[in-house]
Design a protein around this nucleic acid. Structure first.
Lengths: 353, 353
DNA sequence: CTGAAAGCGCTAACAC
DNA sequence: GTGTTAGCGCTTTCAG
């Protein structure tokens, strides 16, 4: 028995020497078929001006040899990488994961792949990722990072092809897609008030995020419209959306004297809200009896926990898809007017509030 | 006022024409500095054999002009894409998300970026993604897909640089990292038995996954060792790890006649287990009083829900990191003996079981 | 319909 | 130390 023959005795070139021999080129294929590289290229790219018989011969050889085009060469030649850069603050968060899926699906539909980069919402890392555009490693970018870090990008390169998703600032002049965060927060708080709650706390994220500012305003105004002054003690900002942050914030809120302690908590993310439920449980408060809880996003998880979470649904998938389409459109018409797109949100009422 | 001057009056070439003018090349930089392209290239790549003064002049010009290397060209020349392909069945699952993070962090540390592809565990999509290696779009791949689909890859290309993560088959001859699923499941079930449970159900995923088979065996043997025959009625396979699947499976299990109905459920994923808790709640069973629940993975979520989930912890981050390192090592020494790495798991006991 | 040839922008011999 | 030059493998005029 020979030294090594892990493969079957199949004798096509593909099976024979994969990985061992130097990858063959379009030139080699052309030579074997007896045509020029131009013809092979035309066949490979589906150009019409090739005689059927010729095309068939080329295709047969490609099939037989298992030849695969070298996209490194194609990319240099065509000056495009066919990669879309997606910058997210934290793709561990299911919210972003779902958006990323939306992006990925339309990207792929259009022949692009996705370069996913987790920036940790850090401006430095964001900058260095963004540089991938200038280095021609990606044809365009979708940024989900905080508005404050987007401003830095906008300042230095409003001309590079990128779009903002979820986080945006219309004044930046960059195409964006998101929701009306002010209204959404307003709806959530008004709902709590309608249910008789008066002392509505807000667990908000870092206000580097534009959405955090908008939701804070929506919360404040909804309270004001009910004749309630939003107290500072009711507002806590966390710098991370994970469960523990929510749990701790809720526990802290419950330290307030009985007359001021919130009878409702609006958390700007379902992950936070899940933590809130846990934190409240920890200090012996019942939900919704003692305090109502409303989250944001409507993650799949929201319906599973006890009690099921009242929340503001965002069309996550569509947000991602729209962002990708916006970017693709920007490729097609670089100087078209850049639209800002706002997608609808929806209050989903469940047992928690 | 001129037609358009969105930028400040800063007059560096960068600010002046970004996106409008043709990107400048190494040749242009060389010409401006008055050296050859080779020298610029050497400086850019940190080669030692350049006089300090020359290096400084080049660097100054690069800085001033905002020149960025064209990696498309570099990649063609060096015949590497510096991209790592990561194929996951579902990155919406927090389990995979965390692993992907591990991969990403070591990849980046080594100058690689990550091409993330969600295969949906579909063999066809997997194949087409895998083809990215042959097209030189990625230098290597990490596969988290089911063992059955990995077999297809292994058959056609054991020589291509890829590694298996979480899912693996030592017989494939492909480097892998994972945990000992048999032991882990065995530990989980033994724990339930030690707590007095006798009728332990298993909610397992699709047995295309090697881990599903291994965990099923661990479950079966642990029961057998306690003198309990694993009944078919106690075992349900789901083809998706989301919450609802767990909820439905649990509800179905509880339809069994009282004498056979499980007094414990071992679910092979925390997401499933969260659903199980919800499903049990739906049919009025209390956890752990009526039925104990053990999950798998130890997602952050496991500690947050009510009751907190007993589960088998996997070192998710390390799994990803190790996979990436394995792949990187394979680049360095293509013909080195390929190790299979098993990382430790751990039973985390909480209130659910 | 097909072929010849000119690069895309970079790296790496190889000279000097 | 530095420059010259030959490609990497492909797409795309431009001829015919």
């Amino acid at each position: 028995m020979p030294l090594s023959s892990p493969q079957s005795s199949d004798h096509t070139p593909e099976a024979a020497g994969e990985g061992a021999v130097r990858a063959d080129s379009i030139a080699a294929v052309a030579q074997r078929v007896g045509v020029s590289v131009a013809t092979v290229s035309r066949v490979l790219n589906g150009h019409a001006n090739v005689r059927d018989a010729t095309r068939a011969r080329v295709l047969a050889e490609v099939e037989a040899s298992g030849y695969r085009i070298n996209e490194l060469a194609r990319n240099l030649r065509t000056a495009e990488s066919r990669l879309l850069l997606t910058m997210v603050p934290d793709f561990g968060n299911p919210f972003y994961a779902e958006i990323v899926r939306g992006i990925d699906s339309v990207a792929r539909q259009h022949g692009y792949f996705m370069l996913l980069c987790d920036t940790g919402a850090d401006a430095g890392r964001e900058r260095s990722y963004f540089d991938l555009l200038r280095r021609h490693r990606a044809d365009g970018a979708i940024c989900l990072d905080p508005a404050t870090v987007q401003h830095a990008l906008a300042a230095e390169s409003t001309a590079l092809p990128w779009v903002a998703c979820c986080e945006y600032d219309p004044a930046m002049g960059v195409p964006y897609v998101g929701i009306d965060n002010y209204r959404a927060a307003h709806d959530a708080v008004r709902h709590l008030i309608a249910r008789g709650r008066r002392r509505v706390a807000l667990i908000n994220s870092d206000e580097h995020y534009g959405y955090a500012q908008q939701r804070r305003d929506g919360w404040r105004d909804a309270l004001a419209e009910a004749g309630i002054a939003a107290r500072d003690a009711w507002r806590v900002n966390v710098n991370c959306l994970d469960y523990d942050a929510g749990a701790q914030a809720a526990a802290a809120l419950m330290q307030l004297p009985a007359t001021e302690a919130p009878d409702a908590i609006f958390a700007v993310s379902d992950t936070l809200a899940v933590g809130v439920l846990n934190g409240l449980r920890g200090v012996g408060r019942r939900v919704p009896h003692d305090v109502a809880v409303v989250g944001f996003d409507d993650l799949a998880l929201a319906a599973q926990i006890d009690p099921p979470l009242t929340t503001i649904a965002q069309p996550m998938r569509e947000l991602g898809e729209t962002a990708a389409r916006l970017l693709l459109r920007r490729f097609a018409e670089p100087r078209a007017r850049v639209p800002g797109v706002l997608l609808p949100h929806r209050l989903v009422v469940r047992a928690s509030g």
